[in-house]
Nucleic acid binder design. Structure first.
Lengths: 123, 123
DNA sequence: CAGCATCCTGCGTGATACTG
DNA sequence: CAGTATCACGCAGGATGCTG
């Protein structure tokens, strides 16, 4: 067997997903792109929502996240090759396919994480 | 979109979820507990699935994950107070409520991450 | 059996500065 | 505008040994 490549017999899909969307922004970026293509700066701006208290994402980190998402096949980079630079990012079919999953996550989060005062017993 | 009341920092639910299940094992633990209570050792053993190549989770890490999950209100710890020690972990109602989300994640992962399918047309 | 104590390392993330 | 280069740091997470 060629073990040079990723000879993953079968990893837990949950773990694989976790790894794929590891990081603070990947899921949010995917969610942000669900409505259509967005430019680098737009994504960056969109990431600021809900993060007024925290520092904005640095170019280095955003760049890294975008590359990782592209490497995962979730998004696609489109460089217009003009000056000033214009680059758009959009979801691939694969990326679009996981939007419902992100939606489910977001939905659950809104329902159970919106209000921290949830000192609920086990049953 | 509905505007929340005053004094509420608008934390992205997606980011909140991400943070809650941060780590390599939390989601898998939740998934593992979906069928009912499990003991510490059972969880540990269950985590070995698909991780034959990697090193097994250390007690320190597992303990931390379980405590974090308990702190998040997803699981509940039940100590039988006997010797030899017997401790069970089970999903809370909150934990059970997010099982479908994990199921969605797992489902998507099986569909799109099971095999390194390439040739992704950005379209 | 179900943990805790200590040490150590890689990586994710942020800050800052620079470029085509 | 859309990145890259460099530095620094906290923390997740693994190794190992011990305990009630």
């Amino acid at each position: 067997m060629a073990k040079a490549g990723p000879g993953r017999a079968h990893v837990c899909p949950v773990a694989a997903f976790q790894k794929m969307i590891s990081g603070k922004y990947k899921l949010r970026i995917v969610w942000d792109l669900k409505d259509g293509p967005r430019r680098y700066g737009e994504i960056r701006s969109g990431l600021l929502r809900g993060a007024e208290g925290s520092a904005p994402i640095t170019p280095r980190v955003l760049s890294r996240e975008l590359k990782a998402l592209a490497a995962s096949g979730l998004i696609d980079r489109r460089d217009f090759g003009v000056v000033p630079p214009k680059v758009e990012y959009r979801l691939t079919r694969k990326g679009q396919s996981c939007v419902p999953v992100v939606a489910a996550i977001r939905d659950w989060g809104e329902r159970h994480l919106g209000e921290p005062a949830r000192a609920e017993a086990a049953e």
